[in-house]
Amino acid sequence: MKLTDIHIEEIYKFTRKHYVEYYDVQTELVDHLANDIESICAENSNLTFEQARDTSFKKFGVFGFMTVVEQKQSYMTKKYFKIILKFAKEWFQLPKIILTILLFIGFYQLQNNSNAYTVYVTVFGFVFIAQVTLTIINARKLKKEFKITQKKWLFKNIINVQGLIYSAFLLFYVFDFFVPDGKDFLMMGDFRKVFSAFFITFIVIFGYITLIIIPKKAEELLEETYPEYKLI
């Protein structure tokens, strides 16, 4: 059996029915299912399209497409943080390393001031709140976009929503764990001061990358990930 466009559309509907919401993941599954259905029908020509489709689907096991979706989600999330790491490395190369050093020295010297802890918390709080706010704004934009295009892209969702919220709460837990409270902050030794200054410098850079750099390059990153995205 050679599958028609109608069959392909039916497979897309089938993936959506089984809780695959992202178009790119749907497309990968459709390609796999279509090839497998044709192979199954070649072996047994008496099977209908629906029977061959269900036979192919059973190969995914009791959890259906869930495992594939989770694997894809994990892969794209790792890809997002690798992109952040790539941009972060640029801050330790000329000419940005000069600004990085100045930020570090500034935060280190600030720790001699009684208001240092307040400044640190304010910097962290600004980045955290900005990430959460941008997450909410982006989620609304993607919801409106979906009503028009009827397509969701996993990596686009990670760049605009999931990645930002993961980043925000990652910073929250790390800050809470590594930075002492106000009283202990003033009693830190030199090693702890260096570490705290480095950490708050990293927060500034991390916030700049997630809030400014990646949003600016979002379309470029999506086109690199999905060659068909620019055609939509």
Rank of each mutant, 00 (worst) to 15 (best):
T77S: 09
T77H: 03
K78Y: 03
K79R: 14
Y80S: 02
F81A: 03
K82R: 11
I83H: 06
I84P: 01
I84W: 06
L85K: 10
K86S: 08
F87A: 00
F87N: 04
W91T: 03
W91H: 05
Q93E: 06
Q93D: 00
L94S: 12
L94E: 03
I97V: 11
I98E: 06
T100A: 04
F104R: 01
F107L: 13
Q109M: 12
Q109T: 09
Q109C: 11
L110I: 10
Q111E: 15
Q111P: 11
N112T: 13
N115A: 14
A116N: 08
T118H: 12
T118A: 14
T118K: 15
V119T: 14
Y120Q: 03
Y120N: 04
V121R: 13
V123A: 09
G125P: 00
G125K: 14
F126G: 09
V127F: 07
V127D: 03
F128L: 07
F128M: 08
A130G: 03
T133Y: 13
T133R: 10
L134P: 00
L134W: 02
T135E: 06
I136L: 13
I136E: 02
I136T: 12
N138V: 08
R140A: 13
R140P: 01
K141H: 12
K141N: 12
L142C: 05
E145A: 15
F146G: 00
K147Y: 08
Q150H: 15
Q150M: 11
Q150S: 14
K152N: 10
K152Q: 13
K152V: 04
W153D: 06
W153F: 15
I158E: 08
I159A: 07
I159Y: 00
Q162H: 11
Q162P: 00
G163Y: 00
L164W: 05
I165N: 08
S167P: 02
S167D: 01
A168L: 02
L170M: 13
F172P: 05
F172E: 05
F172Y: 12
F172T: 07
F172V: 04
V174I: 12
F175S: 05
D176A: 11
F177K: 14
V179I: 15
V179E: 06
P180F: 09
D181Y: 10
G182Q: 14
K183T: 09
K183E: 13
D184E: 14
M187H: 14
M187R: 11
M187F: 11
M188Q: 15
G189P: 07
G189L: 06
D190V: 11
F191V: 14
F191Q: 07
R192T: 11
K193F: 01
V194G: 10
F198G: 13
F199I: 05
T201F: 05
F202V: 11
I203N: 04
V204F: 03
I205K: 02
F206Q: 07
F206G: 01
F206C: 01
G207C: 02
G207K: 03
Y208E: 04
I209R: 04
T210R: 02
L211F: 06
L211Q: 06
L211S: 05
I212R: 01
I212T: 08
K216R: 09
K217L: 08
A218E: 15
